[in-house]
């Protein structure tokens, strides 16, 4: 599995993502500049990390969705390639139509930087194989616009097709309003594409891959990808 990280101007979690990918993959990911029109040869996994692409002065991710590289990313996804979008990366994937829905302002209207807990909805994907279904793990939120929104028909379809990847939960795994920190529809923290090859999520598993930083709850996601 060969990974590449797309760098848009204003992206700022590419270093965190590099550390996480390197620790699971054993090799450093390729850095892909947003003005490039194609992906480097042999890339299996495209990662769009967190940050504030183009400052996010417009809707988050709206500018980046129109960068030249996004056409290649969409083609890669359409051909069944793996794509992981975290935080701003998730926003960019929804803005570019690779994943459905949108990320609105947090319900509190404030930036949130804190631990959260995620409940794994299905463990039979390349991203979640090293968790088990129903398991709760800890992750880190750091965003102002992570409130997942889609119309009811889309939400129903996501649930019917079992494409919800993670939901915000209490530490013990209960889906409850007080655990849904940003106010997301149906507590959705991350979703898959229909072929289960694209994952977008708001929390940062890449920031919990080292016990020194407070835990390794995010590491199974990268370990699973490395083995895919």
């Amino acid at each position: 599995m060969k990974a590449g990280i797309v760098i848009f101007p204003g992206i700022n979690r590419e270093r965190d993502m590099t550390i996480a990918l390197q620790s699971s993959f054993g090799a450093a990911p390729h850095m892909i500049w947003h003005k490039d029109t194609g992906l480097p040869d042999g890339i299996d996994l495209v990662v769009i990390p967190g940050g504030f692409s183009f400052g996010d002065y417009l809707r988050c991710g709206a500018m980046a969705a129109h960068s030249p590289i996004m056409r290649a990313v969409a083609e890669h996804a359409a051909k069944g390639g793996y794509v992981l979008g975290v935080c701003n990366g998730f926003q960019i994937l929804t803005e570019s139509g690779v994943l459905p829905g949108a990320l609105l302002r947090n319900a509190s209207l404030r930036f949130l930087s804190m631990d959260c807990h995620l409940k794994v909805e299905r463990a039979d994907t390349a991203f979640t194989r090293q968790y088990h279904t129903g398991q709760t793990f800890r992750s880190i939120l750091a965003h102002g616009d992570g409130n997942y929104f889609a119309d009811d028909a889309t939400l129903d379809r996501l649930e019917h097709d079992n494409l919800v990847a993670f939901r915000y939960a209490t530490r013990t795994g209960t889906i409850a309003p007080e655990a849904n920190l940003n106010g997301s529809a149906r507590s959705i923290a991350g979703i898959f594409s229909p072929n289960l090859r694209v994952l977008g999520l708001m929390p940062h598993p890449e920031d919990l891959v080292d016990p020194l930083m407070g835990g390794t709850d995010g590491k199974p996601l990268f370990d699973a990808l490395a083995a895919a």
Partner: peptide, 14 residues
């Protein structure tokens, strides 16, 4: 106050 500041970006906050 802290919860509005990203304290973990960079992945090195011990």
């Amino acid at each position: 106050v802290w919860d509005q500041y990203d304290s973990t970006v960079g992945g090195q906050t011990v």
